Amino acid sequence: MTPQIPTRRALLRLASATALAALPLASRAGDWPERAVRLVVPSAAGGSPDAVCRLLANELSKSLGQAIVIDNKPGASGNIGMVDVTRAAPDGYTLGYGNVGTLAINKALFSKLPYDPDRQLVPVALLGYVQNALVVRKDLGVHSVAELVALAKARPGKLTMASAGNGTTGHLSGELFKTLTGTSMAHVPYRGSPQAIQDLMGGQVDLMFDNLSSIAPHIQAGRLAVLAVTGAQRSALFPAIPTVAESGVPGYDVVAWGGIVAPAKTPPAVVERLNAAVNAILATPAMRERYAAIGFETLTGPPQWLWERVARETPLWADVVKRSGAQVD
């Protein structure tokens, strides 16, 4: 057979295809997104991060014209979910919810993280922050922080303190509380807030620090007794509830924050479009109200604001971990 010689037109088509393939992803980001986008939430369904992300995903899917699929990957203090994000293709079709635990606390809590947030992730948007609440089972017999401290000192090591997991702000809120009050309580970590809350209401554990986003409905329904909130100021959602600092623990101040991250080398054009879309959503009065209803205070700004928050709080949480002796139980 006589070999066929490529025509000039075929050669031009081949050259064009080759050139297009060689273009950086950023130059082709104008077509993004052409299919569903996965948002990895490194905690259980029904918890605070899940609630925050589902509110955003619903509106973001409308803005981008594609489905935003929530993928809950709890476990190992959020490490499992974050590893998933770092290993994903940097094409804009996998995002992650990064928070104070996975981006800052875990650096001090784990001797060796299975991912490097500073090198393997890029910031997309800082969404906001939420306070924690200190709640106890209703039949514990305490009605204030002072009464809880007195009971804990009378029964050293006997009270059980649940949390949504090792390294969460619920865990570290409790460790800081124990350090500043000179008390000893047994930490009981769970794989997310929902099961911990159920066991607290059922009397299997005594108390818990948890994000208002997940614990607020149970406080409002009267299923748990709330003693205090953990921020520097009272919560707009529960203005009658004092802060831990007001309740006799000066210097106590803890809030949980989070934002959207993407794998390193995600096209800047995609990051910019996502940041603009998220900011536009969070700026609407309707969304601010919906987030306020679960105790989450929204923020809008450039991607770098998330990394600036990480840089500012990483040494602070490292100090809390060191002083408290917090460990991965």
Rank of each mutant, 00 (worst) to 15 (best):
I219A: 04
P189S: 09
T169M: 14
P74K: 04
A232D: 10
V255A: 10
R119H: 14
S193Y: 15
T183N: 02
N132C: 02
V261D: 00
V244E: 10
V320S: 07
N79A: 15
V122W: 03
A22V: 03
Q66K: 14
I215P: 01
D199W: 00
S163V: 06
T266A: 12
P33M: 01
T300V: 15
I80V: 15
H143K: 11
R38T: 15
Q198P: 00
I281K: 03
L127R: 01
T314P: 03
P267N: 06
S27W: 13
G101C: 04
S247A: 13
A26T: 12
F177P: 02
G258F: 09
E308Q: 13
V244L: 13
G78T: 13
D71H: 10
G222C: 01
V261S: 02
A269P: 01
L55V: 06
M161A: 14
D91K: 05
L140S: 01
L148D: 12
E34Y: 00
A21I: 09
A286E: 15
T243Q: 07
A125H: 03
S247F: 11
K322P: 00
T230K: 12
E147F: 02
V254L: 13
F209C: 05
R54S: 14
D139P: 03
T94W: 08
V145Q: 05
A236Y: 02
T243P: 08
R35D: 08
